[in-house]
Design a protein around this nucleic acid. Structure first.
Lengths: 102, 102
DNA sequence: TGAGTAGATGCGCATATTTGCATATAATCA
DNA sequence: TGATTATATGCAAATATGCGCATCTACTCA
């Protein structure tokens, strides 16, 4: 695959609020997937699919423990990336607001 | 809007190979939008829409100069973000390959 | 003013994504 | 073994996205 395609895939995987919420939930370390539906007030199958997308994008790692699936962020640098992007998002927002309210 | 939604919007805007190519083209500074169709071998209306998405996500800034639209990356930090993410993408790829070819 | 250039947009089509529901699979434990 | 728990998946519907073509608008310049 091409360089930009690869990168776009990663960004696409990050481009959904529910998936970002899952990442936020896993910020402090490994957690059971079974906690997510309750914690996020989302349907179980919905969670399952979002988790699948994150895992196959290499953003999450999953590990089986009996019937449970334990999840963690694959690489702590990803969390830094989220923080950086959040800063950029807020910056951009401020700038765009300023353009209307000078 | 909610925090995660805002962030997701930004990631979604970055989640397309053609849009990343536009950003790559603008890496060294301001350029005319009119160069893009030729440079990227893409249809004019296609470019126009991708540019619109990037501008309204706050990733690009546009400036009119006669009939031309001059484009630039809104914030240089965005380019760093792309580089960082590229590293993460390649890292993740290596790791996933290693899992198959230990 | 009229031709030319740059850009935006309506339309239609194809494909992709997200979701809930119901159901299937798989591991655990009484 | 049979019930329970955790997770995955088929299906169908709704919505979103990406694209090319044709067309429209706006600015420039001869």
């Amino acid at each position: 695959m091409e360089q930009h395609e690869l990168l776009a895939e990663l960004f696409t995987a990050l481009g959904h609020a529910n998936r970002l919420k899952i990442l936020a939930f896993l910020r402090d370390g490994e957690r059971c997937q079974c906690e997510l539906p309750e914690a996020m007030k989302l349907e179980q199958s919905n969670i399952s699919r979002h988790v699948k997308i994150l895992v196959s994008a290499g953003i999450l790692r999953s590990r089986k423990d009996g019937t449970r699936t334990m999840l963690r962020v694959a690489n702590p640098v990803i969390l830094d990336l989220l923080d950086d992007t959040e800063k950029i998002a807020l910056d951009g927002l401020k700038t765009r607001i300023k353009a209307f309210v000078p």
